[in-house]
């Protein structure tokens, strides 16, 4: 049953086999949770938003068009649900997301992460969480979910150029730290 693709599962759910929806939940829950954790910076909120996202997606499944990708459609729901949580809590992160010119200055976290990391790989992966929120989200969607920049721009409501800028800035910030600690030789 797990071999079914997203569209086949959705068709089955639409035909009334609602229990098949659990296949989609199991397929996307971890990646959606990773995204929400970075967006909300709080595990409890991320969990609640994750539930809401799946329920919203279930309710709107009839509106999903089979000629588009479920992942892009679903992540858009996840992203918007996360933004609603932020808006409702008037978090500080809201201010951080007002423009793409977010601070890519990671130096303030450097000492703490560097002292706790065993190697360059661990250091870089921990630093991803310290990137400005949208930078971290673009990195997650691009590398973990394998989405194209075009799909990411649709999910986050950004232009393609700005999405690319966020990816490049994130990589550059991580690259500068890598050079600073001379990790690149060890990692290649």
């Amino acid at each position: 049953m797990n071999k079914l693709n997203d569209i086949e599962i959705i068709d089955s759910v639409k035909r009334g086999n609602y229990s098949d929806y659990s296949l989609l939940i199991n397929r996307y829950k971890d990646r959606a949770f990773s995204l929400l954790k970075r967006l909300l910076k709080n595990e409890m909120d991320a969990e609640e938003a994750l539930q809401d996202s799946f329920l919203k997606a279930y309710n709107s499944l009839a509106a999903f068009r089979n000629d588009s990708q479920f992942s892009t459609w679903f992540y858009k729901i996840v992203y918007n649900t996360g933004l609603s949580v932020i808006a409702s809590k008037k978090r500080k992160v809201e201010q951080q997301m007002s423009s793409i010119d977010e601070q890519f200055d990671l130096v303030s976290y450097d000492a703490e992460i560097y002292s706790g990391a065993e190697n360059g790989r661990e250091y870089i992966l921990k630093m991803v969480d310290k990137l400005p929120i949208r930078g971290a989200l673009v990195v997650i969607l691009f590398y973990m979910d394998g989405l194209s920049l075009n799909e990411i721009s649709q999910i986050m409501g950004l232009s393609l150029v700005n999405t690319k800028v966020l990816l490049h800035r994130s990589r550059n910030a991580l690259k500068d730290l890598l050079i600073k600690h001379n990790y690149q030789e060890e990692m290649l």
Binding site: D30, R31, F33, I124, R171
Partner: peptide, 8 residues
């Protein structure tokens, strides 16, 4: 390295 990111 980023290509090895694992989901939570």
């Amino acid at each position: 390295t980023l290509k090895t990111i694992e989901a939570d």
